[in-house]
Design a protein around this nucleic acid. Structure first.
Lengths: 142, 142
DNA sequence: ACTCCTTTGTCAGGTTCCTTACAAAGCCGA
DNA sequence: TCGGCTTTGTAAGGAACCTGACAAAGGAGT
């Protein structure tokens, strides 16, 4: 068998790194009252203001049903706002509130910091190569 | 800001790849009646026969509370078996049943295949480097 | 012996994510 | 025009994961 030891499989390592990264971020976001899932949606929302929930779901790699759960929390916390009526088709634009925007700025600093720590032992060109290799893997599975 | 575009962040890419990998595996494991989480526990169980649940939790990167949920399913499906009484301390050894072993062999083929597809566009030495870089990232966050 | 610490198991409750299913809206070729 | 096709929203139910909390068991040091 090509990979007798799971610890050398890319799939295994990706899971380990993702889990560690997720947890490290979650820990440091907790004081802000923000979860990683919520951060991801806020981040996507900043990148695509007024996008419908389905678009945010695609950007955060979850189903639109899952996104609804998170969006409900964000609305309840006053960080995001969903239009009452559809503008085009059935799509209701979602927007960041001022508090959402402010909290995202704080959270972004934290997440970027953890990201930097994750790659801190890598030379810049190695980190770039890692990103390129991961992109290739994502393409292969698409 | 160092990473204005989220699509170039390692943390973002790792999440994307993990999500894609997880989904691709889940789809192909479904006909076996097995989830990715269940596969992970079976795999860990094969690597550490008779390990207590807490050890399996560490090996699969989840809490022992989460592992319990999955283990309950595996027991109900007759794929794993938990000793009635602790052998040392409070630890109850968990073991694979014959059906669990057989199903794992099937599942392993599937997961390894998806893993291979994920890195199919990479030269062997690039895939090795990817594994090394991911290991380094995991170490940095530990 | 006794206290402190670590490990393990367990329960409760909540969040995130999934599949399945259906309804509503627009688009597009026949 | 009219029936498919796609996209979007929504609902229900279940799986997997989490934190917090507690009890039980053993080990280490005093």
């Amino acid at each position: 068998m090509s990979q007798e030891d799971v610890r050398q499989r890319v799939g295994y390592l990706v899971k380990q790194v993702q889990q560690s990264f997720h947890r490290a971020c979650e820990e440091r976001l907790r004081p802000l009252g923000l979860s990683m899932s919520q951060y991801a949606v806020l981040r996507a929302l900043a990148d695509a203001p007024g996008a419908p929930a389905a678009e945010l779901a695609r950007r955060t790699f979850v189903t639109r049903q899952s996104l609804r759960d998170v969006l409900n929390g964000l609305q309840a916390a006053g960080l995001a706002s969903v239009a009452d009526h559809p503008t085009a088709g059935r799509a209701k634009p979602v927007t960041l509130t001022d508090r959402g925007r402010a909290l995202l700025d704080e959270a972004d600093g934290i997440v970027l910091d953890v990201d930097a720590r994750m790659t801190s032992s890598l030379a810049p060109e190695k980190a770039q190569e890692l990103a390129a290799l991961l992109s290739a893997c994502a393409d292969n599975l698409a």
